[in-house]
């Protein structure tokens, strides 16, 4: 269980508040208008932004003050998920060991991960020689080897076309399921969310609501959501 206990982040005149729990292995969509604080919420969870007050707990353990790489968390960002000067294999390998000094067994793990995202033959390519969808899959393959129980997806596929994006959302789902991980995804596309989420966290003007089951959320949407989708 991921618990946010009275988390407050104050940035100049912007204030983010969150106080809720997310049960393990749920897939949660984070929805809300631009500038509402969705990415800020993920930054706090990822450890890139310190809380002003409140605690973040994972399985009862306080991780509020842990640096990003020590947290049980893997993140896929909106862009710059791959190092352009490294091959796909190296980019995935970083998920196992940041020094890239991998044992034969670990190298095998990397190859497996790339195969399971259908990039088995693309290991030696650099990002520039991969399509946008293939680049996303390399980033997802890294999630497989990182083996972190909590995965944050911060609009990772927003640069892709609709059909490719829904493929990637499916792949992210599968990978989450295989790793037994809890997933949080920020998205702008309600269709992706319907595809992906068990629960929805609605964020508006810095207030993060507790997650609601998707069906409940869609049946009784908040006014802000109605304005957001425009009907």
């Amino acid at each position: 269980m991921l618990c946010l206990k009275n988390v407050v982040v104050q940035q100049d005149d912007f204030r983010l508040q969150a106080n809720f729990d997310i049960p393990t292995r749920r897939r949660v969509a984070v929805l809300g208008p631009s500038g509402a604080g969705k990415s800020t919420l993920l930054s706090v969870l990822g450890g890139y932004l310190a809380t002003t007050s409140g605690r973040v707990l994972w399985q009862g353990l306080d991780i509020t003050d842990q640096p990003p790489s020590q947290r049980p968390i893997a993140t896929v960002f909106q862009d710059n998920n791959l190092f352009p000067h490294m091959t796909a294999v190296q980019n995935v390998g970083l998920g196992i060991k940041p020094s890239l000094k991998l044992s034969p067994k670990q190298t095998e793990q990397v190859d497996d991960a790339l195969r399971s995202v259908e990039l088995g033959d693309f290991g030696q390519r650099r990002p520039a020689a991969l399509s946008g969808g293939q680049q996303s899959r390399v980033a997802l393959a890294r999630l497989l080897v990182q083996q972190k129980p909590l995965i944050l997806l911060d609009e990772p596929f927003s640069a892709l076309g609709p059909s490719m994006r829904s493929d990637m959302v499916d792949l992210a789902r599968d990978i989450g399921a295989r790793a037994g991980a809890t997933l949080l995804m920020v998205s702008h596309d309600i269709k992706d969310v319907e595809h992906f989420a068990d629960d929805v966290i609605w964020v508006e003007e810095g207030m993060c609501q507790a997650p609601l089951p998707l069906a409940d959320f869609l049946n009784h949407p908040p006014q802000g959501f109605k304005d957001y989708v425009g009907d």
Binding site: Y48, P67, S69, F83
Partner: peptide, 23 residues
């Protein structure tokens, strides 16, 4: 561009310099 990603992967110190910044 790559600070956040490096942080999230635990690329710090020499590894950060050797694998990310210098190249």
């Amino acid at each position: 561009q790559f600070g956040l990603l490096s942080d999230s992967l635990g690329l710090v110190g020499w590894a950060r310099l050797r694998l990310v910044i210098l190249p």
